[in-house]
Design a protein around this nucleic acid. Structure first.
Lengths: 158, 158
DNA sequence: CTCCTTTAGTTTCAAAACGAAACTAAAATA
DNA sequence: TATTTTAGTTTCGTTTTGAAACTAAAGGAG
């Protein structure tokens, strides 16, 4: 990812990390437990050169950590860092959106449940502290502590 | 997006819709209230040909609806459909991840608050019904109602 | 009504990214 | 020891991107 986005915006910054066709797919497989190069390749059917590149990016960006497995080996495992685990909310909301809007609730390809209980993944809806769902028109953006002049100008009056 | 992903997977399907550098950035601006071509272009600094293409995709994919404004005009507005509004959870979790892991909580460029009260956007964490946060190792994937043979084979025993 | 600016694009063309296939080399397995 | 698997890299044609120039209609100013 060649730092395409330069504007101060968390979504832009996030897209510099995973704004492409494969990165989040790889992260999903890591969530499902994949750790090895061939594991990622088989489960996603991504081309090997692209996979190698993305794993390098993800490692550079601190989402995955690459650890040598078996002394003096050319074998490695890729494991999610804390920053990578932090993407779980993003992953889960994408899964729920795809289930609902692409496949439909009763046609979803994969079901996620809780180990032990078997309880299904509950649909989650972000809410305000009083429990009201956060919808678009209850939200107002304003310059944050790290805003630059452009952001201040843009969000001060509108 | 040339339906790059063919596997039955909600994340793969979602990436066919927004797995690129710009689409979610455009959707964010729509959330912030942008409706017009030039509005999207100014706020994102995207190239015009790319913007035109992405707006077309988003319209084709049912995320935005393109509506003529002012009779017999070549002026249009792009508004989020219900499917597009459905991405709000995804948008919010990306924003929170970027705030936390790219900029840092006390350096975020944009602050989101509730209209009226001014209440800040609460950090949201998906939980099981008993309130336990959903973490990676409490989750187990299994074939869903729309699973094909490949999915069944993959998730039945592991 | 006329000129100027804004909006909403399309076209062109060079540069960058993608991806299939072949190739490499070490390690694990039979 | 031979074969297969793993983890890549290299090559090269195809696709996508993006900056810049170009169109053409609509809106606004005087």
């Amino acid at each position: 990812m060649t730092n395409k986005h330069t504007q101060p915006c968390s979504v832009a910054a996030a897209l510099n990390v995973f704004g492409d066709a494969w990165t989040l797919r790889i992260v999903l497989e890591a969530f499902y437990g994949a750790t090895r190069f061939e594991e990622f390749r088989r489960s996603t059917a991504i081309a090997k050169n692209i996979l190698a590149d993305r794993l390098r990016q993800l490692t550079d960006d601190g989402i995955l950590a690459r650890r040598s497995i078996s002394e003096k080996g050319t074998r490695f495992e890729y494991v999610l860092t804390e920053k990578g685990e932090g993407l779980s909310t993003v992953m889960l909301s994408i899964i729920q959106w795809g289930d609902r809007w692409v496949y439909g609730e009763d046609n979803k390809p994969v079901k996620l449940s809780r180990v032990g209980t078997g309880e299904g993944l509950p649909l989650f809806v972000p809410t305000w502290r009083d429990g009201t769902p956060i919808d678009r028109d209850s939200l107002v953006p304003s310059p944050g502590p790290g805003a630059n002049e452009a952001i201040k100008k843009r969000f001060s009056d509108e």
